[in-house]
Design a binder for these strands. Sequence first.
DNA 1: TATACTCGGACACAATGAGTCCGAGTAGCG
DNA 2: CGCTACTCGGACTCATTGTGTCCGAGTATA
Lengths: 160, 160
Amino acid sequence: MKMSGGVEWALHCCVVLTASHTPVPAAKLAELHDVSGSYLAKQLQALARAGLIHSVQGKSGGYVLTRAPASITLLDVVRAVDGPGPTFVCTEIRQRGPFATPADACTTPCPVARAMWAAEDAWRQALAAVTIADLARDVDANSGPEALVGIQAWLTSGAG
Amino acid sequence: MKMSGGVEWALHCCVVLTASHTPVPAAKLAELHDVSGSYLAKQLQALARAGLIHSVQGKSGGYVLTRAPASITLLDVVRAVDGPGPTFVCTEIRQRGPFATPADACTTPCPVARAMWAAEDAWRQALAAVTIADLARDVDANSGPEALVGIQAWLTSGAG
DNA sequence: TATACTCGGACACAATGAGTCCGAGTAGCG
DNA sequence: CGCTACTCGGACTCATTGTGTCCGAGTATA
């Protein structure tokens, strides 16, 4: 089980978008992170479909965060990029084979699935407890405040 | 991100193996669950490599649990079948691009990765808190005690 | 000793992720 | 007002991993 690598890109992009209130083109985000612009576009489109970022077309278009960074959780981003479905899928094995439990006895989920889903819930809860604003603050503390300021200037300017 | 379906099979097999102290062949486990025997063998081999079950060759061979069911956690099974690696992999995006943070400033992990790994730890902790014995008890409570007894008789007998 | 039954790893196929490309649409500029 | 240049959006192709299958090596039994 490996998470889509696009999640990492999307999270970093959200953090960067924190620094700019004007639309930032996908190409610029790609150059900033030195990744494939064509592929990053796909992740940004997923974020846009989920309503986390808003797309602006036209000459000075790009992407902007729709909500305040403090109200966007990591879970939102993960669900948008990696899909909302559960990682563990129960195929109802118990209803198959010579000792299959009858369907009318399956009112509650399979104990195996229940345990797996409980663990997933813990994971999601941990993701929901962290927001993009938290990440931005941490990055700020790690890289120094001047970093984000420089990035902001580079994003808004026409430099490439 | 979807978890390997083999995890579900492996978990159910571990629960079933709780009911038998004599080796159970993979073919029998496959028939019991009505799944592909050839593919189930792969999962059982993974469990054997991880030391969770012991393989006995020869005419009346099969698989047996190596430890007590109460000392085998769901995390053990998931790690054995689905791989021990982290689901989120950090590609150190921060060290790339025009605003790359210098390597000597990267003594601590990237804040993004830190948050994702913290969530994974919560997931693993929840998995480690549940044992095969717990699952067996829950299955017993759901399907009634007579179910496991019947399965045990069927496993040890030569019926097919 | 011969045999039948077991596991174990090596071999194909399918689905999903990774990456690329070009067309539709819109804001700015002459 | 029309043109241009720039943007996003979805459709397409390739690589990797999961899914499924097969046959050979090895051993307890009769």
